[in-house]
Nucleic acid binder design. Structure first.
Lengths: 170, 170
DNA sequence: CAGTTTATGTCAGCCTTGTTGACATTCCAA
DNA sequence: TTGGAATGTCAACAAGGCTGACATAAACTG
């Protein structure tokens, strides 16, 4: 199967979109598009002393204010030690506030400060601008397909996290 | 506009797919899906002493055998120093062969060895399997939309590279 | 055709961000 | 009340980005 020309052509249906060549194009599209996806916020971040990891933390703290470190860990899929380094700098720089939980004092609840929200807005605006342009160029049907495929590419665990965030949103 | 509810609702058309909330969901879908996209090859690679950078190099050398280092640099969008570290280990381990150009002796042309092709197959199979499952679940129309949006998300320079590769393919 | 400029690739060293291991604090249940 | 589980922090290391300095080959220029 490694170099078979079509991988799903056993059936009689029109499965030409499942040929290895089509899949490879999808893989490469994913690779190049992700670069574009991160390019604009990355540019903003390197001007300050931050990286993509800081952006991710800021994004999800903004999305779910008061979230715990542990919850953020599950969303981001990194180790707590790795996240901790990022959080430490964000807290030290006054962009994130960490409050000890009142019911469970082991927990730290995370919030963006005013400065944090300002930076979040800058980063979001940049990233959304590109996404908006892409969505508008592609049209609503293409966008629906885009999201369907992306969801199907996630692990079930990620899907659940994604859906939970989605539903908490609007 | 940073926290406006809709960003494109000036027009009378049905532009509800361009609301900030929809864009944010697209952003998060991209984030989670990319994790899934890289998860399977990553697992294979960490067993050996390689990382995602090695995978990318192997992928595109396989895609365009005989490519020069400089060409690969443009495709991957990293610095030559960064790529060089990866190439050096791949060559040392006998997965990639580097031949001095005959017309222009400054150039090095890159090829996968037999072992290199074997690893490439393993990685490709893993990544394609997930992509195939996602494509099949989503169906051909969704896949078309997926690719349309991803292409619209690339910089024009990347789009050109992507298209060139695509057309050289089948 | 000699000297300079350009193209290409390599080496050294730094930074971000991932990893594992060790540990302090807090909570809860036996 | 004490021992284990949960939560978060600190230290040290590895991968893979980056810039800067440099060697060599090719191309250009007077």
């Amino acid at each position: 199967m490694a170099d078979g020309r079509t991988s799903g052509s056993i059936s009689g249906e029109n499965l030409l979109f499942l040929t290895d060549e089509q899949l490879r194009q999808g893989i490469e599209a994913m690779f190049f598009a992700y670069r574009g996806f991160t390019a604009d916020p990355d540019r903003i971040l390197t001007d300050m002393a931050y990286g993509r990891a800081h952006h991710r933390a800021i994004h999800f703290i903004n999305r779910a204010p008061g979230t715990t470190v542990n919850n953020l860990l599950n969303i981001l899929g990194v180790t707590k030690q790795s996240l901790n380094r990022v959080l430490r700098t964000l807290i030290a720089d006054g962009l994130v506030e960490s409050r000890v939980g009142q019911t469970d004092k082991r927990e730290r609840h995370l919030f963006l400060t005013e400065d944090g929200r300002t930076l979040e807005g800058r980063l979001s605006d940049a990233q959304r601008a590109r996404m908006r342009a892409a969505f508008r160029d592609a049209g609503p049907d293409a966008v629906a397909g885009f999201r369907t495929v992306l969801e199907a590419m996630m692990d079930t665990e990620m899907q659940r996290t994604y859906t939970r965030l989605k539903e908490s949103g609007a």
